[in-house]
Design a binder for these strands. Sequence first.
DNA 1: TTGTAAGCGTTATCAA
DNA 2: TTGATAACGCTTACAA
Lengths: 335, 335
Amino acid sequence: MVDRTGRRPTIYSVAERAGVSIATVSRVLRRPGEVRASTRDRVLAVVEEMGYVPDGAARSLAVKSHEAHGLVLPELRGPYYADLLTGYEQGAAEGGASVVVLLTHGKDDVDLLVRRLAGRVDGMVLMGAVPVSSRTVDAVRAKLPVLVLADRHQDAVESFSTENVGSAEQLTRHLIEEHGRRALRFVGTPDIADDVQERYAGFVAAHEAAGLAPADPVPATFREDDGPRVAALLLDGELEADGVVCANDELALSVMQRLLAAGVDVPERISVTGWDDVMAARYVTPGLTTVAQPVRELGREVAVRMRGLLEDRHSAPERHVLPTRLVLRQSCGCP
Amino acid sequence: MVDRTGRRPTIYSVAERAGVSIATVSRVLRRPGEVRASTRDRVLAVVEEMGYVPDGAARSLAVKSHEAHGLVLPELRGPYYADLLTGYEQGAAEGGASVVVLLTHGKDDVDLLVRRLAGRVDGMVLMGAVPVSSRTVDAVRAKLPVLVLADRHQDAVESFSTENVGSAEQLTRHLIEEHGRRALRFVGTPDIADDVQERYAGFVAAHEAAGLAPADPVPATFREDDGPRVAALLLDGELEADGVVCANDELALSVMQRLLAAGVDVPERISVTGWDDVMAARYVTPGLTTVAQPVRELGREVAVRMRGLLEDRHSAPERHVLPTRLVLRQSCGCP
DNA sequence: TTGTAAGCGTTATCAA
DNA sequence: TTGATAACGCTTACAA
């Protein structure tokens, strides 16, 4: 399956073998309707016989489009990013674009990698949590459309996110009003990401609406490892609480497991809630009350919007917020 | 940030503005050591000022390398594929390559998409479960290195997988010998994928070694939806069993939940085991006994091997098998 | 309907 | 140390 030069077949070798010009080969592949059937069949036969696959780089150079989008995520733990990627890939594929994934976790030259990626894609999506300088973001934005997810509101760049404040407020209010909680703690570090900040804001809002004083957040990362520490605080009595609103499910599951193991009655004595609705949330006992985000849809919508931006530059940056859904199970106190 | 032609800066506009040739600009970016410091600084300043990012397609065309690998997966549900991608991306990035992800689920022109992808990457990894014709695989293989994961042993193409038969046998033997099970059923459809087939083979082997007759498998897909159906069979008494060896955790979790909800004592009356060690496996009660695979490492090793193949074509196809680890929790009967 | 030829934006060889 | 210039493999006017 190599032509006589000993290399992989190019459009030239196919053309030669089929006895046509390279323009005709190109047409056969891109606009078969413009070629006479007999010619087309002959070319196609040669293409098949030689195993010719057009070089994407050469095509990109000629058409000035990479037919690819870049998706930059911190990592892929948990269902969030995977669902996001799934939705995005689908949306991009519908427009004939493939997606190049860049995972920043554990890399120390993120800015360089992002810039380099910018040379290989038509548009780029950045997760708010990725550690990239705003200088780099600006440089990339000067070159191609950039969409940002779940990030602090830099109003210059268009962003997508799922609703946080309202749902957090609703969840907190539920704990206060339906389950009579009076000493709730928010577990998570608001500064760590925009989402967490907004969820804490909702927590605070619900307290104020109820005439209660909101407690300070209990710092914790998104990882499961912090659960035991927080649970220990609760068990020691160092943290007085009749409910914990955790920044995500991993944290909530891990805290809850520790509490249960120590004989604490969840939810009777302490309510526990999470965020994300991971698979484990519906298999644990008690079932974890949490907030479900339409992540797949989010991903798909971001991709569709990106395709729109690629068609028509210069549309004003919009701010998209998708609604979330409260999932009441038993860990809050519901039957 | 556009040059006077109104378009994005190219190596030409940078060269012009810096008063050097394009060759020098290219050198500054690729081999700064070969350029006089004063020239280098001047060029770099212009690069920065104009926001110049080299076009990846043009570079690929010139160097005859896409600096990208294709990873074709059926979907991204569950931790398996996400971990695989994480490991692969890391391994690829270490070699300066990015990864283009193609998700086949829900697409009807997979063969076409795979061929097209082959024109944009230097090497391709195919998950065994993706619905792609062997004609296409052969066509792609003629053009670039292909690695296959968890696939039926077509010995022509190099493959990676995690160990199945031995671990399944070990797990089954554990149920028979330690927990005295005598009526085990395997839940999963062996024909669906190579993994399942091998897991069932281990199930059978353990029975034969113990002088027991292995029952036929109970067909079920990898999805959670099949759990209720299988559980119903068990509850109806239509399926006599004192233990079920499920093809994966989703299935096991869902069967177990149904059994528990119906008041069946797991593991006292029925043992339940899974495969994959998903997060939920360690949060449910009883904890799910399962088999953990080193998926991240697998991904990374595949990427490293791909880099090797890219260096040196024509190395004979090897068959790599990574060891797995039995994770004993309580759902099998262990304390 | 088909062919000619001019780009597309890099890299790399060879001279200067 | 730097510059001209020829690839690289494709698409697409424009001409025939």
